[in-house]
C-alpha cells in the first residue's frame, strides 16, 4: 500500500468504488433486521453482543457520575442540612404510615380469610441504578445496572419510589434495557382506583403524558383519578400506581372521550429503581378446559312461568 510519508500521491487517484461491499453490507443489514423482527433466538445473540459494548456504556456514564459526585462533594453545608431535615420528616411520615399499614395488613388478611379469598404475598425485589438514558430523542428507554446475573428477565416490571416506570425489554449479563411507560410503543392495562373501571393506557412519546385509550363518553372517569395496574395482562402485578388523570375532554365529534394522564413515577428524575419479581402466573394445564361445562340452565319454577 503506497502510504509512505515521502511519496507524492496523485491528486485524482482513483480509489476503489466499493459497490460490491455496499451491496454485501446492505444485504447483511436487512437480514439482521428481518431476523431480529422474526426470530426470538436473536435476543440471545444480541445479549451476548451487548456485553461487548458494556465498556463503552460504562465509559460514557462516567462524566455524569463524576458531575453528580462533584456537586455532592462541593455542595455547602446548608443544603445538606436542609436535605437531611427533609429526609427526616419524610421518614417520620413514612414510618407513621407503615405503623398503620401493619394493622391494616393484618386486618386485610383476616378479612380475606373470612371471605376465603386468595392471599396476597409480599413481592421480592432488587434495587437497580440508572446507567444511561437513551440518546435517541424519539424513544424513551434507559439502561440499568442489573442484568441476567442478578436475575433480571425480559418483561420484568420496574418501579421507582412513587410508581410504575416500565418493563425490561432486553437483558445482557450485567445490564438491562427498560422501556418506559411514556414510550409510544408501550401500552398496558390499568384500572381506576376509585371505581375499578378498566382501560388501556398508551405512552404518547412525551414524559409527562399518557393517553387513556377508548374511553366511552359516559364512563365515570374524572380529573385526579388514580390509575393503578389491573394485573390483567399477567405482566404487571395488580395494585401498583401508574398515573393520575390530568385531563378529560368530551368532544361530540369523536367516538371516544380524550383522556390524558400524567405518570406518577418520576420518569425523568429517578436514578434508583426496583425490579419486582411477581410470583409466576398459574398457566392452565393442557387438559384443563377453560370453562366449566357442567354448568347448565336451571328451569324456573312453574309459578313464575305463568
Amino acid at each position: 500500500m503506497p502510504s509512505g510519508g515521502l511519496l507524492i500521491k496523485p491528486l485524482f487517484s482513483h480509489g476503489p468504488v466499493p459497490g460490491y461491499r455496499m451491496l454485501l453490507c446492505a444485504i447483511l443489514a436487512f437480514a439482521l433486521m428481518f431476523a431480529e423482527h422474526r426470530f426470538s433466538r436473536m435476543e440471545d445473540l444480541r445479549a451476548q453482543m451487548t456485553t461487548v459494548v458494556a465498556p463503552i456504556q460504562w465509559a460514557v456514564s462516567v462524566p455524569s457520575d463524576l458531575l453528580t459526585w462533584g456537586s455532592l462533594a462541593l455542595s455547602d453545608q446548608r443544603a445538606l442540612v436542609d436535605e437531611n431535615r427533609r429526609l427526616r420528616e419524610q421518614l417520620l411520615t413514612l414510618s407513621h404510615r407503615v405503623q398503620r399499614m401493619a394493622s391494616l395488613t393484618a386486618e386485610n388478611v383476616r378479612l380475606r380469610e373470612l371471605l376465603n379469598a386468595a392471599g396476597q404475598a409480599d413481592m421480592p425485589y432488587v434495587t437497580a441504578e440508572l446507567l444511561s438514558l437513551d440518546s435517541d430523542p424519539f424513544t424513551h428507554q434507559m439502561v440499568i445496572d442489573r442484568g441476567r446475573r442478578d436475575g433480571a428477565y425480559v418483561g420484568q416490571p420496574v418501579m421507582d419510589a412513587s410508581g410504575l416506570v416500565g418493563q425490561v425489554t432486553a437483558v445482557s449479563a450485567y445490564s438491562s434495557r427498560v422501556l418506559m411507560l411514556a414510550d409510544a410503543n408501550h401500552a398496558m392495562p390499568v384500572q381506576v382506583n376509585r371505581n375499578g373501571l378498566r382501560f388501556i393506557v398508551q405512552g404518547s412519546g412525551r414524559y409527562d403524558t399518557l393517553n387513556v385509550m377508548h374511553v366511552p363518553d359516559t364512563a365515570d372517569i374524572r380529573e385526579g383519578d388514580l390509575l393503578i395496574t389491573s394485573g390483567l395482562a399477567g405482566r404487571f402485578p395488580a395494585g401498583y400506581p401508574v398515573a393520575r388523570v390530568s385531563e378529560v375532554v368530551h368532544d361530540p365529534g369523536q367516538p371516544f372521550a380524550r383522556v390524558t394522564a400524567a405518570p406518577v413515577a418520576q420518569l425523568q428524575r429517578s436514578r434508583h429503581f426496583l425490579l419486582l419479581f411477581p410470583p409466576p402466573t398459574v398457566e392452565p394445564e393442557p387438559g384443563d378446559r377453560l370453562w366449566d361445562e357442567t354448568f347448565s340452565l336451571i328451569e324456573p319454577p312453574m309459578e313464575l312461568m305463568q
Binding site: 455496499m22 453490507c25 446492505a26 447483511l28 443489514a29 436487512f30 437480514a31 439482521l32 433486521m33 431476523a35 431480529e36 423482527h37 436473536m42 444480541r46 453482543m49 451487548t50 461487548v52 459494548v53 463503552i56 456504556q57 437513551d134 440518546s135 435517541d136 424513544t139 428507554q141 439502561v143 425489554t169 432486553a170 434495557r177
Partner: peptide, 16 residues
Amino acid sequence: LIEGSPLGQNALTLSL
C-alpha cells in the same frame, strides 16, 4: 447495540 435500535438499522445507514 448501545442504542437498542433494531440490529442493522444504523449499520445500514452508516455503511450507506
